[in-house]
Design a protein around this nucleic acid. Structure first.
Lengths: 209, 209
DNA sequence: ATCTTAACGCGACAGCTGTCGCCCTAGGTC
DNA sequence: GACCTAGGGCGACAGCTGTCGCGTTAAGAT
């Protein structure tokens, strides 16, 4: 006999439940691809998924909840940072990847950012995903140091990566500048020049995790 | 200001019309300051302004329209870029100003960005405001060149400014990192180092080393 | 096979959003 | 002052959004 106040009774993750989840998440991605983040509505997702509205509301609460689940699914694919043989090449390739994802219309990435302004859980999920990706990319910097491309002084990898990638997000998302095919390379090159000049050298012992 | 393209015979920009506009825009700013962009609703603005809902809908259409008008009003105040005597100081001061505006809770600037994802007109207005601000800041670079802080080769001022400021927006708005009081200075310094290394030279980078 | 109950379907409905038509107020002009 | 009418007030209302209660289905346990 289970206590009715028990917050964790038996769950049923399999069978129909899993099928409904898959249908709904597919519907979310399809709606995003078709109408962008603007056209992403609970009603539309439910209809496309062939599921009742109330079901979507109960399990995902709101649009932000749907995005959280989609982001979680996106975080599960094993993404690998580029490895071209030089820091400049790696950062350029990374930036090209970013630019591609931001220029796509409608952009899944931009939809996530937009949604993050409206849903705290979605914002946390997205922040987590980005944090992971930047952490993964730190190996680019380590490899560059090993190759002797950067001074032997400890380099703040995260700051370097942000310096290299931030202009892309700024220009394409916030400033809405027309995409410039040279931008990924230029931003990467700028970051490398700054790094070579010691811009990201860590003086003290911070950055130790 | 009167629109010269407006062909409608009699407009009545004065008196009550102007008073209503002022009341509504004040209400928008107050609501933004109190509830953030999330709590900005047509109903709330109308009530606070002491104006009927239908009036707000008729004149501003939607929340984006309200923001457009507020942005336009913000663009009218005469903002001046900092002048500290050095490029690094100027960029640091600029970044501190930006950081301050982004860290404020609720942040007016962040509210505008959020709204821009939902309203094309608001996005255009904001882009315009930013474009103007960046153009105004180009004088920082010109002064630095005149002082001999930067090589005499032509420098892409806009790219330099974006490189200096983008990390702030990226960290505080998109990545939602906790604000770091050193960030404005570091980002500024990084940009200056890159610039000194010729990162923003228009001709090409290999000549200056 | 049988039982328990989590999870979904369904329809009703309250609250909110945006629109419309009508009337009234007051700005601009003579 | 008198007149014309742009613009605002007002209330009604259609459409949409999110919630709730209840009945049904089927997942997991025995």
């Amino acid at each position: 006999m289970t206590d009715p106040l028990d917050t964790t009774p038996d769950r049923r993750p399999g069978g129909r439940t899993a099928r409904v989840r898959a249908q709904v998440l597919d519907a979310v991605r399809a709606e995003l691809a078709e109408h962008g983040h603007e056209g992403l509505t609970m009603e539309g997702v439910a209809t496309r998924a062939g599921v009742h509205r109330a079901t979507v509301y109960r399990r995902w609460r709101d649009v932000g909840g749907l995005l959280v689940d989609v982001i979680a699914a996106a975080g599960e694919i094993d993404w690998q940072p580029p490895d071209t043989g030089s820091l400049r090449g790696d950062l350029t390739a990374l930036n090209q990847e970013i630019q591609e994802s931001l220029v796509l219309r409608p952009s899944f990435a931009v939809a996530l950012m937009a949604a993050s302004f409206h849903s705290e859980p979605a914002a946390r999920a997205q922040t987590q995903l980005w944090t992971d990706r930047y952490a993964q990319c730190e190996i680019l910097v380590e490899r560059a140091v090993q190759r002797g491309e950067l001074p032997a002084t400890r380099t703040d990898a995260r700051s370097l990566l942000i310096a290299a990638t931030a202009p892309l997000y700024h220009q394409l998302v916030l400033l809405r500048t027309d995409p410039d095919p040279r931008l990924p390379e230029r931003a990467a090159e700028t970051a490398v020049l700054a790094a070579s000049a010691g811009a990201f050298s860590v003086r003290g012992q911070e950055a130790c995790e």
